[in-house]
Design a binder for these strands. Structure first.
Lengths: 181, 181
DNA sequence: CTGAATTTTCAGTAATTTCTGAAAATTGTA
DNA sequence: TACAATTTTCAGAAATTACTGAAAATTCAG
């Protein structure tokens, strides 16, 4: 498993970024390798290419599976397991958003609900609940969006993102539609 | 500086989440305390409330400043520096999105541009560039959005988020408007 | 079934990140 | 300007997280 210089530098970069995202260096490198390589890869190839232990690869793959970021593939006449990333980059992005939401928002949303159900017995708690309520409502909306993204086709997602700065105009149009009813 | 049980449990939770976000436990706790407390807090109060060293608070505040997440305030007749979070929760959210974009997307975007400018000297690199191009274009659109969010008022942002599942319909409306031209 | 190939687990170690106390730097007032 | 109050810095210690090799578990062809 030889790696071109181009891929090598991308892998290093994604390794660094990996830790800024919820992953870690090795996971970032592994996924970069898988995404940027056309052919399916097995664990030994990954271990070899990234110079990390076979067991580390195994744990990394487990993690990537739990993120739904890789697809398992079998190759005729080969007993090893091979992995690829989805060919549609939008699918990867969608998965990332949804999985991060699960990990970063859902637990907080649920604990905030508990706080909002409890009784505020003094002024400080009243202020706290007010703030929590605002955060809760905001995060709930983000969650709704994330669900919406999850169910959108890549084409639709792409169209939505392409709106870019046009989004303000769309909002205005919507207001007009509503007010003219 | 006494903390109610409610705030205490929120602080602990945000501490845990802090590491899942780009921050770390202490930073998460510190920001939770500041956001959930109505009064401005000084470093000693934070150190005391969270049971962490004064120097750790100093470093945490420095980090929160670099994220633009806190506001410095002076209290008449007191030489200490006091800190608060923005009172508008939307402003906090907007700042978070923008700052995370700066840290998580911008560097990658720039390195991808370099890769795209370089010459692919073999088939593997051609595939790699194709993938990089797709990722680049996607991330660039996300960046455009993030810029757009940055310049939107809290009201407009709120309206946009409230669209929630309505976003698909809006897209359809936009298509109709365009095709009827 | 058997056993070789492959993958997973896990305890110990290595690397990284976070935290602290002491000292240095800065700030503001008298 | 002098100095006490306050904040910042930073080297080393503590805590956390990531990685490895060896062993256990699983898988599957014959």
């Amino acid at each position: 498993m030889k790696i071109t210089e181009m891929t090598q530098s991308l892998i290093l970069h994604f390794g660094e970024m990996g830790s800024k995202w919820g992953l870690n260096r090795t996971l970032g490198q592994m996924y970069a390798l898988i995404v940027l390589t056309e052919e399916p890869l097995n664990a030994d190839q990954i271990s070899d290419a990234l110079q990390i232990s076979r067991s580390n690869v195994s744990m990394g793959l487990k993690e990537l599976k739990s993120w739904n970021l890789i697809k398992l593939q079998h190759i005729q006449g080969d007993r090893k397991e091979y992995f690829t990333a989805p060919s549609d980059i939008w699918e990867i992005a969608r998965t990332l958003v949804v999985e991060r939401r699960k990990r970063e928002l859902d637990p907080t949303l649920s604990m905030m609900r508990d706080v909002l159900l409890s009784e505020a017995s003094n002024e400080a708690d009243e202020y706290t609940q007010k703030r929590v309520k605002e955060m809760h409502d905001l995060m709930e909306m983000v969650t709704l969006w994330s669900n919406e993204l999850q169910s959108m086709s890549s084409e639709k997602l792409s169209a939505l993102l392409k709106l870019g700065e046009g989004i303000s105009k769309i909002l205005d149009v919507k207001d007009k539609l509503l007010s003219s009813k």
